[in-house]
């Protein structure tokens, strides 16, 4: 299994000379199994960079963690949706009030977008309940995690490897002390023993003090969480739009020196390839 980070920016796109390496596109990750099956995790603006021109299976599955705009704004520009012969399956968190189709149609319909969701013939939408589903070679476990609104984290298992994707996650809100007790830590069951953990690290410690409850983590939180879960490698994600490449580098370096963590960690770069 391998992954490619097509969009790592949080909240809103931020293209410019200061955000070239970590990128300006919002959340999207492409996961490919050894046999060539493809999963897309979130469809922020980065989804347009997915290598989907040569999908071997004729099917692509898109897993949405939640429906905040920075995770779905690329959907209307996801070329397989308009390509005959390619089957697209869209999965997202279940709701008691409206179907996933109805919720997505708020965006994919005029006046916000010229094409209606119902006019995409190759699309199948799945309201996903917490639990595990098998999608081709991928065993996908979805659980709700701490973030405003219904938000899933995903644990993807394939080819004897595990990738956990928690792009928007504030475990500190629920437990206060992340290192204390796995049972009381949001997302722990998803991340436990993962080979690679892609996790929200939007804020510095100082920024977080002003943004408690906004649904995001600091790098310190992400490291605490990765250590608790025993993850093999942490890739930070959902970078704060106001942070330049230099600031992200400096912050990761400072926290790395201060923490001396046993966890290998790095900031997720735009276009980064991860081999599991």
């Amino acid at each position: 299994m391998r992954a490619k980070l097509n969009g790592t920016r949080g909240s809103v796109g931020r293209a410019g000379p200061g955000t070239v390496r970590y990128g300006g596109d919002t959340s999207s990750v492409e996961v490919t199994s050894n046999e060539g099956a493809t999963l897309i995790l979130d469809a922020g603006s980065g989804v347009v960079h997915a290598d989907v021109a040569d999908v071997k299976t004729g099917r692509i599955d898109v897993l949405l963690t939640h429906l905040h705009m920075d995770h779905i704004q690329g959907l209307g520009f996801f070329s397989p949706l308009f390509e005959p012969g390619v089957e697209v399956h869209m999965w997202g968190p279940i709701s008691t009030t409206k179907s996933l189709t109805a919720r997505l149609a708020r965006y994919l319909s005029p006046p916000l977008f010229p094409v209606r969701l119902r006019d995409l013939p190759s699309l199948t939408v799945h309201d996903l309940a917490p639990g595990t589903v098998q999608i081709g070679p991928f065993s996908v476990t979805a659980e709700f995690v701490v973030h405003p609104g219904q938000t899933f984290g995903y644990r993807i298992e394939a080819d004897s490897r595990t990738l956990t994707y928690l792009p928007d996650h504030e475990p500190a809100l629920g437990s206060g002390h992340i290192r204390d007790d796995p049972k009381w830590t949001s997302g722990f069951a998803l991340a436990e023993g993962s080979d690679v953990l892609i996790h929200d690290a939007q804020y510095t410690d100082d920024e977080y003090e002003e943004r408690v409850g906004w649904g995001h983590s600091t790098l310190s939180h992400a490291l605490d969480f990765a250590e608790l879960a025993g993850a093999g490698r942490l890739v930070t994600f959902h970078h704060e739009p106001n942070h330049s490449d230099e600031e992200i580098d400096r912050h990761h370096s400072e926290v790395g020196e201060r923490r001396q963590s046993a966890i290998r960690f790095e900031a997720g770069l735009a276009g980064m390839h991860i081999s599991l």
Binding site: G174, K183, F188, A189
Partner: peptide, 8 residues
């Protein structure tokens, strides 16, 4: 996976 309480 280890037992973890639901986020609710």
């Amino acid at each position: 996976m280890a037992s973890q309480h639901p986020i609710e």
